[in-house]
Amino acid sequence: MSERTMVEALNLALEQEMEGDDAVIVLGEDVGVDGGVFRVTEGLLDAFGEQRVMDTPLAESVIVGASLGMAIRGLKPVAEIQFSGFSYFAFHQLESHVARMRWRSRGRFTAPLVVRMPYGAGVRALEHHSESREAYYAHTPGLKMVIPSGPRTARALLVSAIRDPDPVVFFEPKAIYRAFREEVPDEEETLPIGEPRRVREGDDLTFVAYGAMLHRALEAAETLAEEEGVEADVIDLCTVSPLADGPIQESAKRTGRVVLVHEAPRSFGPAAEIVARLVEKAFWWLEAPVARVAAPDVIVPYFAREQAYLPDAARIVAAARETLAVEA
């Protein structure tokens, strides 16, 4: 075991998967000599050579489109899009082909590839470097949309994503790329895609969050425990799509009160789908309206105001208190 940041943990996952399987290759802008602008691919070029670590031209569509071709030909490409804000050049490839090749060819050609991209606000970046648009990808049948919340889950989920038979869009919450370290075992570790994790146990209230927001939800849960003796169940979604609602339902039925947290815009965000599932499947167990703490439906403001834009622990605590105040 050693303590690693998320960047180091992702790097470990890539290194070990490339070591274990010659079909795994990495491609993207500045991923080779530079080691990626966030250094996630650092050292891979030296270890595996330029055939397996491709510094590509600046062209997102062909990075993703060629990855699909490589996957059809038997490789397991891991493409990096430098920032999720630039992934829309490749959106067409993801929506029109990557997500559909298995379906179109009736299983003859498949797309076992991963498209990694840093996303989310909180690092005082320029425009287009802070969005949280997971809903675009979650809304596309055929894709899997995965978001880790810390170094250990990042490593384990990336390994699973690389081995997955289907295409995975892998969002990396860059605000916590280096924010803290966690024990990440040297030996192989995977986490199943499509399974949320329960990361804190409580019977009074349910929080569902993912990515960097998970930590704000956990902070809110601690505040509530300290100040009011309220114990929150906290669920880390891990996989936004396909959404597995089983553990969320189970928790909601136990606590009757649910607060959903994400930094994506409020309307049509993943929380909206979770609310719908709860209404369909756990309505009679709910003791209060399900609350959403999300970013407002605006473009992410320039960084001087980004912390005001992002949900924080205080907003989550306030939403929880309102939910708890509803008489059953």
């Binding site: 060629a66 990855s67 490589m70 030909r73 038997g74």
Partner: peptide, 12 residues
Amino acid sequence: SQIPHAVGIAYG
């Protein structure tokens, strides 16, 4: 939109 796939297959 199919042209990038050819390039990837060829690389593979």
